[in-house]
Simulated assay, not measured.
Amino acid sequence: MKTLGTHNYFIYILTNKNKTVLYTGVTNNLKERLYYHQNPAIEFKSFTSKYNCFYLIYFEEFKNIETAIQREKQIKGYSRSKKESLIQKKNKDWDFLNDTV
């Protein structure tokens, strides 16, 4: 078990191949979470599997889960254009970052 304050938490934004859908989530293991988005349980139909949102285009890292959740909620409340601006600042070409995690 990790000592309090030594965990890593991530908020992330996924999109589909055509970059028309955005999904925001939070996790403590980004690589594993991406795997589960790409390989959902057959009996469980999630938003990301329904809209083929498997491509990581943005993420932020946090040490505190409460801060990460607060940031996730903030981003989820953003308009589409504000989310696009946020992504653009860190990932100008909206490259898929799955292999960089």
Rank of each mutant, 00 (worst) to 15 (best):
L86H: 08
Y78N: 08
I11V: 15
K83Q: 12
I42S: 15
L30E: 03
Q70M: 05
A41F: 12
T48A: 03
L86W: 06
W94N: 02
N8T: 15
K83C: 15
I69D: 03
E72W: 07
I75R: 03
A41P: 09
I57F: 03
N98T: 08
R33W: 09
K90Q: 15
S85D: 13
L34W: 05
K89N: 13
I87P: 01
Y36T: 12
T15E: 04
N91A: 08
I11P: 02
Y55K: 11
H37Q: 04
V101G: 01
Q74I: 14
Y51S: 08
S81I: 00
T24R: 10
N28G: 07
M1R: 06
T24V: 15
K63I: 10
A41H: 14
N16S: 10
K19E: 09
T48H: 02
F62I: 11
F47E: 09
T24A: 15
I42D: 14
N91G: 06
T100P: 01
E32N: 10
N64T: 12
T48R: 02
F44M: 10
K82A: 13
K82H: 11
T27G: 04
L4N: 04
Q88P: 00
F47A: 14
F96L: 05
D93F: 11
E66Y: 08
F96G: 05
L4S: 05
K82N: 13
H7K: 15
G5E: 04
T67D: 11
N98V: 09
K76D: 00
E60S: 12
K82I: 14
D95R: 10
S46I: 02
L4M: 04
Y78F: 12
L56N: 01
I11K: 06
Q70R: 08
I75T: 04
E32K: 12
C53I: 13
C53H: 08
E60D: 06
I42G: 12
K50Q: 11
K83I: 09
G5K: 04
E61H: 05
I42P: 10
I13W: 12
E61M: 13
S79I: 00
Y12S: 01
A68F: 11
I13T: 07
F47T: 12
Q70A: 05
Y9T: 04
S79L: 09
L22N: 09
W94A: 04
K17A: 09
I65E: 13
K45N: 07
Y36G: 03
Y35E: 03
N91Y: 00
F47H: 14
Y55N: 13
A68E: 05
D99V: 04
K73E: 08
K89H: 08
T20L: 03
V21E: 12
